[in-house]
Design a protein around this nucleic acid. Structure first.
Lengths: 138, 138
DNA sequence: GCTTGACTTAGACAAAGTCCATTGTAGGAT
DNA sequence: ATCCTACAATGGACTTTGTCTAAGTCAAGC
């Protein structure tokens, strides 16, 4: 976590209380929070932080590649602090719980040229859907 | 297209002018429209149709499995009338163009049990990202 | 300890979608 | 053919998620 702050400082980031708090929230719990949840947790640590700042900071972290935006749920973007190991997601269709997963195989190779329509394909994002143990038993 | 209307009627759907128009819009163009675009096209055919009705009808079509919700873009849901042949999506990172694609392989089999966390996994959604020929040459 | 430009703030604004009370109507019953 | 009624549509207020702006604040270099 302090390494994250180090990296950011190394990139010429001006370190402010607000940015530190946002970075701490993301590093603290390895879950996938929405911007609003990040804001709520940030407010708990620094009451006067504003919504705009949280949005700005999240946006900067995404630009810097320190955090990923995930949109498994169609309501709000979620932020994934685990940006350094590529991975996909497994989402509970009922409660929305998200886990990081690492499928085998190379999905990029599974898209034949004839299915590329001239696109330069650079990335795949896979979202597995199902029911988590809790929701399945309910 | 009339088969869509037939199927719906067969399922006890009450057929109204509004629903017919929405179904026609979706069947007419095999592109991925946002709810607002559907609404705009529906208004062209039936000026007094309301936004809420379009949203309701789209939601019902999704529930009935006649149409898929796609959220490749994080702004708005898009609706994919091609619900009967399973497929994935290829999205241009710059202009947002979407194509349906059919990768080879079975991505569900690529998720080992150890990566399922007790979930009952039923579905995968793959989004390939890249640049379309137009945007790549620009 | 100043200065300065980057950062933060609050609140207005915007886009996408939902809710609800009221009005309308499809389709079965008569 | 007409009537009934449950289901559907309407429109406008509301909510959620996110962006923008003008003015104030402060981290860091000197």
């Amino acid at each position: 976590m302090s390494d994250l702050l180090e990296r950011l400082r190394g990139r010429g980031w001006r370190m402010t209380a607000q940015r530190r708090v946002v970075a701490e929230v993301l590093n603290g719990e390895h879950v996938h929070l929405t911007a609003d949840e990040v804001h709520a947790r940030a407010v708990a640590k620094l009451p006067e932080i504003s919504r705009a700042t949280v949005y700005n900071t999240l946006g900067e972290l995404v630009t810097l590649g320190e955090v990923l935006e995930v949109s498994t749920d169609k309501r709000a973007k979620r932020y994934d602090p685990n940006a350094h190991r590529p991975h996909h997601h497994l989402v509970c269709a009922r409660c929305g719980a998200i886990r990081d997963v690492h499928p085998t195989g190379n999905p990029l190779a599974d898209l034949p040229d004839s299915e590329r329509f001239g696109f330069t394909v650079s990335d795949v994002e896979m979202t597995y859907r199902g029911l988590c143990p809790n929701c399945a038993s309910a």
